[in-house]
């Protein structure tokens, strides 16, 4: 009993007063609220990261353009970012190097045709350095993507007699006028069809040490209504040279496939006066047989009516 009494006295002596407990609890609560609010405000301020894809396209020797694709990954899955402004530069992020701006569409895509004033630079430079920059966007972090392209060109020649054989030579621009042959580049061949490009030939057509690849166009390819064939030769997504596209309309002398005109024939899809004979004969025979019996029975009934049976 004495021991218990001492413990009670001690606990009373060392316990925290209730008002202190309330203050302590209030402080903890406020601290928690503050920390939470801060964390939330930090979350709200945090900008999403983006990924910018930049591709260079050279259309024969005529024009060049860049494509930009902006993606973000909020939940383990990339989604396109629309409506953001991307600044595009050539070689340096300066006013003189700035080519222009594009705004991405709902697919996160943007296409930029290089202005004429930059073609002089393109003609003289051996290596082109393109930059796509997202800067000061309220929702997304700043991002810079750079692509370095070695300028190259395609030289196309055909078998003069038949046009069925096409030789492609890929040359990298160098200080000389001739250019350096590019070995091991994968050249793709397509022909224009009604809705899209049709790949033809093998999956891989690599250039040799001379930078050349020879391709035999299939002779059974139909041309268009005027007997022409629109051929596309492409170097696609190359790490060094980007995309080079060459197209040419060949006098193919092979007309498009003419669908056999069955208008005057007896087919399943003809009008009723051109029903196929078998479909005319057999149902009518069946009808004759069935209705013949029916009429025979009706005649029997008529005979009963007339009292002749």
């Amino acid at each position: 009993m004495k021991g218990m009494s001492i413990m009670k006295t001690l606990s009373l002596n060392y316990s925290i007063p209730w008002c202190s407990k309330v203050v302590l609890l209030g402080c903890c609560l406020m601290g928690w609220i503050f920390l939470n609010a801060h964390a939330h405000s930090n979350q709200g301020d945090e900008k999403a990261r983006v990924r910018i894809g930049l591709n260079y396209f050279k259309i024969a020797e005529d024009s060049c353009y860049l494509t930009v694709k902006v993606l973000t990954k909020p939940d383990r899955k990339y989604i396109p970012v629309s409506g953001v402004i991307i600044n595009l530069f050539l070689n340096e992020q300066t006013k003189s190097g700035m080519m222009g701006n594009i705004t991405t569409d709902k697919e996160g895509l943007g296409t930029f045709i290089l202005p004429d004033k930059f073609y002089t630079a393109l003609d003289t430079l051996i290596t082109l350095k393109f930059m796509a920059r997202l800067n000061n966007d309220p929702s997304f972090q700043d991002k810079l993507t750079t692509v370095e392209i070695k300028d190259a060109s395609m030289v196309i020649s055909y078998d003069e007699d038949s046009l069925r054989e096409v030789k492609v030579k890929l040359l990298e621009k160098d200080s000389s006028d001739r250019g350096t042959p590019v070995e091991g580049a994968d050249i793709k061949f397509y022909v224009q069809r009604l809705f899209s490009l049709l790949p033809i030939g093998n999956d891989n057509n690599f250039t040799d040490a001379e930078g050349e690849v020879t391709f035999n166009l299939p002779s059974d390819l139909p041309g268009d209504g005027e007997g022409n064939l629109e051929l596309f030769i492409k170097l696609e997504d190359d790490d060094d040279y980007g995309n080079i596209v060459f197209s040419n309309t060949l006098p193919w002398e092979s007309d498009w496939i003419t669908v056999k005109n069955t208008f005057d024939e007896r087919t399943m899809w003809s009008p009723r006066d051109r029903t196929p004979y078998f479909l005319w004969i057999f149902p009518n025979l069946i009808l004759l047989a069935v209705w013949g019996v029916i009429f025979y029975l009706i005649i029997q009934l008529m005979k009963i009516y007339k009292g002749t049976i």
């Binding site: 399943m268 899809w269 003809s270 009008p271 009723r272 029903t275 196929p276 479909l279 005319w280 149902p283």
Partner: peptide, 10 residues
């Protein structure tokens, strides 16, 4: 205008 090609007519 029956067309004997059509199962509906049959």
């Amino acid at each position: 205008y029956a067309r004997l090609q059509s199962p509906i007519i049959w």
